[in-house]
Design a binder for these strands. Sequence first.
DNA 1: GTCTATAGCCAGATAGAC
DNA 2: GTCTATCTGGCTATAGAC
Lengths: 203, 203
Amino acid sequence: MIKTKDATTESLILEAANKVFQRKGMDGARMQVIADEAGINKAMLHYYFRSKQQLFEAVFKKTFASFAPQIIKILNEDSPIEDKIRSFTFNHISFIIQHPYLPNFIFQELNRNTEFILIIKEEIGLPNLDKFKKQVQKEVEEGVLKPIKGEQLFINILALNIFPFLTGPLIKAVVDIDDINYNKLLEERKTEVANFIINSIKA
Amino acid sequence: MIKTKDATTESLILEAANKVFQRKGMDGARMQVIADEAGINKAMLHYYFRSKQQLFEAVFKKTFASFAPQIIKILNEDSPIEDKIRSFTFNHISFIIQHPYLPNFIFQELNRNTEFILIIKEEIGLPNLDKFKKQVQKEVEEGVLKPIKGEQLFINILALNIFPFLTGPLIKAVVDIDDINYNKLLEERKTEVANFIINSIKA
DNA sequence: GTCTATAGCCAGATAGAC
DNA sequence: GTCTATCTGGCTATAGAC
């Protein structure tokens, strides 16, 4: 690992730990591998973060904090649902393309340790659906949208955005395409997904 | 663990291992926990399956084999796309509701060890999309469906079916509902998802 | 702050009695 | 086939020199 100009040891560790934890998960990650990746000694990990558990939590919180705002933003804007969906899916999928291991990491660890949700709720905050739900209901009543519950629509949006990244290898095998064409498929989804959703809900 | 009438030790082990691996994953699972769950001694696990790795593979293949046929079936039927989607989403979501840990398990482990896909491809077989893709193309040309690629439609169907189960705890927290109401939401999806998809693609 | 060496523990695997 | 007891290796964590 080559040190960039002003990389502190702590930030080197966090970066390396992030990489390894995202690929291997908490249980599968090895402190030695993280140390090697950071180009420093294993003892330093404990010097800076005391334990593997605490290092992991630091990484996880940081990672989640980079992911959540994407979701929170859509919910609190004032634009119509259709515009929200277009900009959100485009930005969200673009973001995930650049961080493909991220969704898997978050879901895997949240599943493994449910308490994390409480920690995150307190320390970072979770998106609030109330405004979005009301807006959907209003547009349904105005006849702009076909009847649909805000919760279900929200789940559908996340599902269509995130799912292909959770299962990459399997989908590649089933759809029987190589990496290049799979990436093309994902690129297409930046606009495809919004069209798919809007076609479905527009009255 | 109470032995049912003709449960062999091997089947007891497989059942227990299935339970533990699905919740904890390969790395997080402990042979001792599996033995306790099966109500037998730890040494027996090695007597029957030699190593943790081999036990895991036996469980994984068995699990995958119970999941894949659901997907393969839809692709090879002769009914119109709309009917396929309705019956597939209904059956698939019903199945997952009864095996909620299953999708997470499969995706997590496929992600951890990409070689598994090759093993499964050889030993169990993967769904083939060709027929489905041709059928979608045909119905698009006939004007039954709006333009959409078979691959994208297939990914969308899987995404909408499976996603809510991959992220249960997080969605519960964001949508801010309890288990009972979350289960209601999932029940609704048995028909909701098909409506959502068909609304979107029907010309 | 950073390293080497090592303690201590835990989990997978095996030996061997029954 | 099933058990108890034990080995062995690997991993987290710490002690202590520099």
